[in-house]
Design a binder for these strands. Structure first.
Length: 471
RNA sequence: GUCCCCAUCGUCUAGAGGCCUAGGACGCCAGCCUUUCACGUUGGUAACACGGGUUCGAAUCCCGUUGGGGACGCCA
């Protein structure tokens, strides 16, 4: 039997990092066994679900390269079917009407807690005569859960987990307004969608026991479960906003690459020997949810940065230019000239090994976009002292006459510094001020490479700007 | 409070009784490379939570302790 997995987020916020990993694992598992990976939007909470959130999830998954099979299922559209199942349960005597008020429920919980029992509904309408029903109140439908025995789940990640049925109360499956609850909806939808493997966050483990009761009540085959340990923030607590963990789009905005994120997420809780850089193909052939570890992993931005830098270096220059231009234009609101793009493309090979993310790559790429007259950074300004300027002035005529390949430039300047200057100085004494004059910065890719890209005319003009600067 | 789960370097992990003097990666430190900053490269730092068992032998199995985490809604 080929597996069918699914990712089933509720659109009450954005696609967060944990959800992204859940989706990745579901997809990888399906791919590994030549099955299907499906997407279901759990939008039954009309109050909190928004079209924007749905859009963010779809976009996030697509951006991450986690496309799904078949049509997206919207849970809200299945409400009639869910009610049908609730009715079937009612007919079978496996569900009943409950008229308890919210106040009563709160009391029950408080009492149970005080008495050291598991908090929950006490079953007061479970076997009560329907004739006692209050006429002024609409009932909720509760599942008549087994009281004796236990639920055993053979979880692909957690192993065998057992919970006594007495720990589980009679859950509501249909609200008093007739809408189905999550617990009912997931089971019905997973069954209807032919889901064979439910791979989701650890926080759903206890739900699995109640869901299993439901499957059995309906006489449906129970899917395999795999509950993934949650991703924690650097402090060890559940990932939350205070960790700066927002939607996946925040990672995109910071300049993380989908491939890097996929690789990083994959290695969180799962490993394949000493392998660190893992291609999508390798991931598909190696991954098995059964190999996922049971312990929660902490999110480490330093390692993500390292992986991202790797994928950045591997990316082709043209794509990188496009990404950088897109970012820069979004920030400045102005266009990019053909000449600027030409410089960017020529300089990309020297730029990318110096960057970790797209945002710092874009920042360093600015040196190729800046036009005269340059504004010097404080450091650059300091480098351009009178002594340095005098050396540059002496160099200028040689530059005007010499060749302009980066190697020629280097040997020319080196010769000037080491042999022509009196007393002779090291290359750096001339190259550094030169860098400051040409780029306006103290840091850049190799200066002779930069000069070659700018061309002789532009460089001489920049040099003149600098030398004529009286101050 | 009740139930469930977890425990190897700071972090992610390898490890399924002898291959472990515990391996890799990130980070950190130092050297090399070098016109700056990176990249690269070489080396270093650093862990089996604790206590009992079982065994000829335990990071690996069992029990307990401690420490973390998760779930307990007419939310999903």
């Amino acid at each position: 039997m080929t597996p069918v997995t699914r990712f089933a987020p509720s659109p009450t916020g954005f696609l967060h990092i944990g959800g992204a990993r859940t989706a990745l694992f579901n997809r990888l598992y399906a791919r590994h066994f030549a099955g299907r990976f499906r997407l279901r939007i759990e939008d039954t909470d009309r109050e909190r679900s928004t079209p924007e959130a749905i859009e963010a999830i779809l976009e996030g998954l697509t951006w991450l390269g986690l496309d799904w099979d078949d049509e997206v299922v919207y849970q809200s559209e299945c409400a009639a079917r869910h009610r049908e199942v609730a009715d079937a349960l009612l007919d079978k005597g496996l569900a009943y009407r409950c008229y308890a008020t919210p106040e009563e429920l709160a009391e029950m919980r408080a009492l149970a807690r005080a008495e050291g029992r598991p908090p929950g509904y006490d079953g007061r309408w479970r076997d009560r005569d329907p004739a006692e029903a209050p006429a002024d109140r609409a009932p909720a439908i509760r599942f008549k859960a087994p009281r004796e025995g236990e639920q055993v789940i053979e979880d692909l990640v957690q192993g065998q987990v057992t919970v006594a049925n007495r720990q589980l109360d009679d859950m509501v499956i249909l609200r008093s307004d007739g809408s189905p609850t999550y617990m009912l909806s997931v089971v019905v939808d997973d069954h209807d969608m032919g889901i064979t493997h439910v791979i989701r966050g650890d926080d759903h483990l206890t739900n699995a026991f109640r869901q299993r009761q439901l499957y059995q009540a309906m006489d449906w085959s129970v899917p395999s479960f795999a509950h993934l340990p949650l991703i924690h923030g650097p402090d060890g607590a559940k990932m939350s906003k205070r960790h700066g963990a927002v939607g996946i789009e925040a990672y995109r905005d910071q300049g993380y690459l989908p491939a890097a994120l996929r690789n990083y997420l994959l290695r969180l809780g799962w490993g394949h020997g000493d392998d660190e850089i893992i291609s999508d193909g390798e991931a598909e052939s190696w991954f098995d949810v059964a190999d996922v570890g049971k312990n929660a992993a902490r999110f480490d931005f330093a390692k993500l940065d390292n992986l991202n830098a790797h994928y950045l270096r591997q990316m082709d220059d043209q794509s990188l230019v496009e990404l950088v231009v897109e970012r820069l234009e979004a920030i400045s609101g102005t266009g990019t000239t053909a000449e600027q793009k030409r410089r960017l493309f020529a300089g990309m090979a020297g730029l990318k090994p110096r960057a970790k993310r797209l945002d710092d790559l874009a920042l360093s790429a600015q040196i190729y976009l800046a036009e005269r007259p340059l504004t010097y950074s404080a450091d650059a300004h300091k480098l351009l002292n009178p002594e340095a300027k005098a050396r540059l002035a002496g160099l200028r005529p040689l530059l005007e006459a010499g060749g302009w390949e980066r190697e020629e430039l280097e040997s020319l300047v080196r010769h000037y510094a080491e042999n022509l200057l009196e007393p002779s100085v090291k290359l750096g004494k001339v190259a550094q001020p030169l860098r400051a004059a040409i780029t306006g910065s103290k840091v850049s890719p190799p200066i002779f490479e930069v000069m070659e890209i700018f061309g002789r005319e532009e460089c001489l003009s920049r040099l003149d700007d600098c030398l004529s600067d009286e101050e």
